[in-house]
Each structure stands twice: as structure tokens, then as C-alpha cells.
Computed example of a mutant assay.
Amino acid sequence: MGFPSVRPRRLRKNENIRRLVRETELSVNDFIYPLFIEEGENIKIEIPSMPGIYRYSLDRIDEELEQVVDLGIPAVLLFGIPKHKDAVGSETWNDEGIIQRTIRYIKERCPDLYVITDVCFCEYTEHGHCGVLHDHEVANDPTLENTKKQVVSHARAGADMVAPSGMMDGVVKAIREALDQAGYTDIPIMSYSAKYASAYYGPFRDAAESSPAFGDRRSYQMDPANRREALKEVQLDVEEGADIIMVKPALAYLDIISDLRENFNLPVAAYNVSGEYSMVKAAGKLGWIDEEKVMMETLTSIKRAGADIIITYHAKEAAKILKTG
């Protein structure tokens, strides 16, 4: 037999054979869509650095919820922007706070939509850091005590899942104990297990009004140069009771997603963050890339790396493409 005897192109000849041998399939069932809810009335403000993404007040959220449900997106991740901020973020455990009211509102109108709450303090503190400060440093254990109050309040309001994002040591164990003691044993924890101190978060901080008033978050979020440390962080969360483990950001950390898939049997989530979204949008607007194709290739790469769940601002656009084939 003449060279070449092996011809991989045989299985690329047309779309039907490509579909038959395709290894990675993207589905709307993979997506979680983030929502920004601002306290106030008649608010629908597009975030300048995130085209197509808005901050909504509760009285303007119905249209967005209808789209999410109609597209078959199974879950939303809630971020709140309160009117009142203080040194400890006490609005996070206010049963009449913006997130608690939003949970009840969604559950009333869209009972089958799965509601996940981001559990952190940066949007609620006047200093923009993710917990209680002592001498300009985030104090781990006092922050855990406030986190317990926050998750129980979210559970009382009807949250389906909580997602701690502050990277505090021992946070998963503290949350699991607090939920169990309050009788919410069935509420799962999706932990931001490997969350890096990334430059890709810039647009999100505009969206959530959560930029630190001083310093940065490198003392509690992970160093982008570290890979093995992610396995250590995730192992701790698994031992403490995490139900889902997460990597954030996604696109620059595909190796970490792959590592988690290879080493752990829990579902792996990946957060396709604001900066990753905004770069695609900006380049698409300038005509430098085919925005739609780059978006779908990006999401497919995250799934191919090993993510079972993708938190993405592209969720609605991607769902429309998948829906129409």
C-alpha cells in the first residue's frame, strides 16, 4: 500500500461525517447565565465594557428572565448591587436585601429556573474587599462567620445553590456546617475552588461596582503562575464538602480545568469571565474576527478541556445558535 496509508481526512469529508465523529458537543444544558441586580427602580443600564450585558432593578428583570427560560438555559447566577454598603457587608445577610428579594421574585415567576447565588462581600463593602478587614488585610475567620449568616439568609429566601467566591480558607466547611445546622442539608455548594487573581476581571468590577478601594486581592486569590496549588485548593474544598468545583477564569486556565477533570470525580464548572467576553465583543465590533464563530469555539474549548458547566455571559447568544442548529 502506498504512502499515506492512514488518511484522517476521510473522517472530515463532509458535515455529516464530522458530526458523527465529533468528540465534544456543546449544549444549552451546559450554561449558567450571570445576572446583575441593582437595588432601586426602573433600572436597565448597559455595562459599557460588556456590550449586551445590563444591570437591572427587580422591576425590570422580567424580560431577561423570559429570554433565559425560553432559550432553555437551566440556571442563573445572581450578583447584587445594594444601595447600602458598610465595613463588613452586612446587607449580604439582610433577609430583605436585594439578592434575597430577587431569589423570591424569580422563584415566584419562574419556579423551575435554578437559582444560584454568588456568596461574597466585595459588592457590599465600602472598601470593595471580600470580607472583614483588620489592618487593611482581609481577616479570614471573622469573614467566615459572616459568610455563614449570608448563606443561611440566601437559603431562607429559596436559593437552590450557593457559590462562595471569596477564596477564604475553610469556607466550604463553614458553609456546609451552617446550612446543615439550619436545616438546609439539600442545598449544594459550588465552590470557586481555583480562583485566580486575574486581570480578566476588570469589566466585572465595573458591572458589580466592586473594585477594591485600595490594594488588590492577591493575598487571597491565587497566583496566575501556579498550577499545582490549584490541586491543593480543590482537594481541600472536596474534603470540606463541595458538590461542584470551579475554575475562574476559564480560557487562560484550560490546563487547570483539565487537571481537575483528570484528578477529581465531582462536576467541574468553569467561569468564562467578563474580560474574556469583552475581548470577543470588542474584536467582533471592529470586524477583526467572526464574533459568533470565535464565541462558539471558545465555549467548545472550555467544554473540551473538561468543564461540565460553563458560567458565561455568552449564554443567551450561544443558546440561540444551538437552538437553531
Rank of each mutant, 00 (worst) to 15 (best):
R22D: 07
P188M: 10
S278C: 03
V21P: 00
I43G: 07
G131K: 01
I32W: 01
P34M: 08
Y33N: 06
I61Y: 05
P188D: 01
H129I: 10
Q67A: 11
V6T: 14
A318D: 06
M168C: 05
A155N: 05
Q67V: 01
M279F: 10
T185Q: 12
D259P: 05
D86R: 13
R55A: 11
E123S: 15
N14D: 15
Q221H: 08
E63T: 11
D135C: 03
V115E: 05
I289F: 12
Y33C: 12
Q235L: 11
Q181L: 12
S198C: 11
D255E: 14
G72F: 04
I98P: 12
E46W: 06
M167D: 01
S191C: 14
D59C: 11
K281I: 00
V152Q: 02
V115F: 04
R19N: 15
E291H: 04
A182G: 12
I81S: 06
A159D: 09
S49A: 11
M246P: 07
G158I: 10
L251C: 08
C122K: 10
G325E: 13
A199L: 01
F36K: 03
E25I: 15
D255N: 14
F264T: 10
E23D: 06
R261F: 00
L35P: 03
G241T: 11
S278D: 00
F121H: 11
Y277A: 06
A208N: 04
H84I: 12
T298Y: 10
I309Q: 10
I32T: 09
Y105W: 12
I257R: 05
A199Y: 13
T298M: 15
R19T: 08
L266H: 14
G183Y: 11
A159M: 00
T102F: 07
K320D: 07
V162R: 02
M50G: 05
A250R: 05
D112C: 00
K232V: 15
D70H: 09
S165V: 05
S57M: 09
I189Q: 05
I37M: 03
I189N: 04
I116N: 01
D237T: 06
K303W: 07
Y253N: 15
Y220V: 07
G158L: 14
K149H: 12
L26I: 10
H136P: 00
S153W: 07
L254K: 13
G72H: 10
L20R: 12
G89K: 08
R227C: 01
L236K: 14
D290N: 15
L113C: 02
V28S: 09
P34F: 10
E63H: 09
I309W: 07
R218P: 02
A194T: 11
E46H: 09
V171D: 00
A159H: 04
K13E: 12
A182V: 06
A225W: 02
